[in-house]
Design a binder for these strands. Sequence first.
DNA 1: TATCTTTTGTGAAACTATTCACATAGTTTG
DNA 2: CAAACTATGTGAATAGTTTCACAAAAGATA
Lengths: 219, 219
Amino acid sequence: MAKKETGKKKISESTIRRLSLYYRALSLLEKENYETISSKELAKREKLTPAQVRKDLSFFGSFGTRGLGYPVTELKHRIAKILGIDRVWNVAMVGVGNIGSALVSYKEFQKQGFAIKLVFDNDQRKIGSNHKGLIVSDIKDMPRLLREHKIEMVILAVPAIVAQYIIDDVVGAGIKAILNFAPINLQVPDDVFLRNENMSMELEYLSFAISNHYKPDQK
Amino acid sequence: MAKKETGKKKISESTIRRLSLYYRALSLLEKENYETISSKELAKREKLTPAQVRKDLSFFGSFGTRGLGYPVTELKHRIAKILGIDRVWNVAMVGVGNIGSALVSYKEFQKQGFAIKLVFDNDQRKIGSNHKGLIVSDIKDMPRLLREHKIEMVILAVPAIVAQYIIDDVVGAGIKAILNFAPINLQVPDDVFLRNENMSMELEYLSFAISNHYKPDQK
DNA sequence: TATCTTTTGTGAAACTATTCACATAGTTTG
DNA sequence: CAAACTATGTGAATAGTTTCACAAAAGATA
């Protein structure tokens, strides 16, 4: 009997991140024509333990068949539903410097259902120019355009120095989910989800690892 | 009496990541002409608890003065030393598609001491072309060039489908630290540090958060 | 110099996450 | 169809991380 997710029990951040890994692994398994997959094999592919896989999934229901494993395609869809990626999300890119313009062309986002519909900048030389079929809009028009195009997520790729001002505008326009690439700690109201992506931090981690002959559990 | 880091006790991944945050905060504090900073204030700036800050630092020694706090500039240098970023690292970029070429121009890496010295691709149309002052080399010459230029870290920004072949070459050339942007789980020997950066995963996390009215501790 | 205040550094406690281990339920085989 | 096998789902045990709480150390005050 599948337990319905009540939304009551607290799901840990790590579990959610692993769901993304499972989803990716299942997409691959589907292409390899697997019909079912055991927690053991799924764990092996993502360098986790079978118990971890089963425990993670058990928070959301009971998806497997004892003696057989999990149905690949069905589990994939179930995870997509849990993650909320069983639909297309309208995303806007704010800032088209190096990172911003690269991400606009990044196929992976589109593939996972994150459709970049609008692109903004405050640089007059960039406004009006074409980035992969999208015309760069003036950041001054952002509040209106975000609403008009029903944008639900924003990727912020602006210089750290202006990031707080711009995120205030983004929040003001009603956006509740923001992925920030500026290396600075931004303030947002409690009901806005903010994730920070800091690529230097990953290199610093590697630097620490080499410098200290550190042997972590390779994630 | 400062306790010398023995390298024996296990430092958690989260602690290391927070060191990066402290480092960044301290750099800012230095610019704001702070001479000392309390764990309380430092915690506030990075949305952590004072106890967390003190505990993290205590793994590496005793850097503060009771009643006063931590000396900003000195602590910054100490953390730089711990993270191994008190020097310049020679880095190579492998793959100059969207992400790769954006990262080559990404100022933040340079600023943090990660100097991209070589750029590789296997696409004949790209080889020989100029990316921000760097000529794209043929990936066939990678083993030789990595050694000649004393490269210690590689950023892998190639399509998932070829990532395993290419990382095998990178490992073969003696590289011990790799930051991978391909959304696939790569195999490397035990003595090679591999970090995966998956930007779609961050958007999926936001998608989950919105879809489930999830309220995490905003990290 | 004595007292008060501040803030560190750190064991211990509380909390969170992972792994274990096994009853259970289903498949497969002869 | 019964026995053997396989693999889930999950409480309990273990391991790991964060927070608490306070003694101790240093600065500030008078």
